[in-house]
Design a protein around this nucleic acid. Structure first.
Lengths: 138, 138
DNA sequence: GCCGAATTTGCAATAATGTTGCAAGTTTTT
DNA sequence: AAAAACTTGCAACATTATTGCAAATTCGGC
């Protein structure tokens, strides 16, 4: 019942050690991870290039999604809903704690629609809230 | 009536050629710019390092603000309201056109408040909408 | 299970991006 | 006009990302 194996299979990807490992890291972490986070937390050493390529593959397949940040890194997090290739449903709010620096996907808080000026056609929207998370807020 | 000069003066910064030039580029562009964009569009050649430092200075002073992206670059755009040092008021929505790739500040569309789970304390929120801009939408 | 085809990985090389120290040059202050 | 404060550019370095290619792994049919 290897969960990571199933996810890979479901998305029509070859099942390899590296992919399973990276997927495990996501499944265990809960929060969002950067390339560097994954490189650090990999028990077995994975080549940097493999990590880049695997993350890209996962994004393309809809297994993970990207979270915009203002510090020239990209964060990645598991998609909860069944995202299909090239068609993400990550319409939830992301929360960055200014204390512990963790990024959390708030799957239950969906991004509200906004009224755009005439002529602008929205396709998708991302929202990132900064503040204090429940653990640090005391 | 050098507008760039005034902005610098108002923020207590030394008035130098490089700063005026970069500020002009922002004033003329309307949209959001990356470090690379500025490097390209500078008529006079500016040192890469100077651009990095100037952008940081402008962010610190509240002249420009950062826009989160999912492609490991940072975009910068002029703050419309009077932002003070260390205290930005860039609570407006950003729009990225998937056709022309431009990023536009929608100063009139403010980021809506969302209801966060218990214990989470928001400080500020950013919102990025992707889609078709009015120029490309035809 | 074995074998060939297709895919994936790791290494090396290269490119792009970001940072720091310091001397020389500018701007501001007095 | 000179001193003090600040800014710039260069050089060196560090980090992060991309590409080509050969070796290794995985997949599919048998």
């Amino acid at each position: 019942m290897d969960q990571s194996k199933n996810i890979l299979k479901r998305n029509g990807l070859s099942i390899t050690e590296g992919r399973k490992l990276i997927l495990e890291i996501f499944l265990q972490s809960m929060g969002a991870l950067s390339h560097a986070d994954i490189e650090k937390s990999a028990s077995v050493s994975l080549d940097r290039v493999t990590i880049y390529r695997t993350l890209q593959t996962f994004v393309d397949s809809g297994i993970i999604h990207q979270i915009p940040t203002t510090d020239n890194t990209i964060l990645y997090a598991l998609c909860k809903d069944s995202c299909e290739a090239g068609h993400h449903h990550d319409n939830h709010v992301h929360f960055i704690c200014m204390e512990c620096e963790k990024t959390i996907c708030m799957d239950e808080v969906i991004v509200p629609k906004v009224q755009l000026p005439k002529g602008f056609e929205p396709v998708n929207a991302a929202m990132v809230v900064k503040g204090m998370c429940s653990d640090c807020h005391n």
